[in-house]
Amino acid sequence: MKKILFILFLALTNCTLFAQTQNLNKKTKLLVYYFHITDRCNTCRSIEAVTTKVLNENYKNELDSEIIVFKTFNVEYPENKYICEKYQAYGATLALTKIEFGAEVKIDDLTNFAFSKIHTEEIFTKGLMDKINEYLK
């Protein structure tokens, strides 16, 4: 009996965690996740702002049809603990996740790229768009 309860518990936990990260449309090809702490600096805010701008200006249709899913998470909120662990996001982190047939194929951590290029917006924009286009193929 204990074993069955334990298995049920594990199954439920996994389902919940799966739902937290994988509530995906079948069309979804790309997850764009941005993580941040509560006390944010200008650079961190800029990365989020420019990423939002790039997506809204260039991938509006993909966002609306959920081909691209864009989400932001505060790493200090308890409800985001699992997803932060999964992405190893303990502070500002920009990650792209490629999805194929509802399953994750690859996680691409763009944090270093973001922090080194964000001060030249056009370079950051081009680099981010190149990546997004690659994953949308």
Binding site: Q88, F115, S116
Partner: peptide, 17 residues
């Protein structure tokens, strides 16, 4: 080597990493 990204990602909440 540029460690800015790693710094922002880990230094505050995952210092050992």
């Amino acid at each position: 080597s540029d460690f800015t990204g790693d710094g922002f990602k880990y230094a505050k909440n995952k210092e050992e990493k």
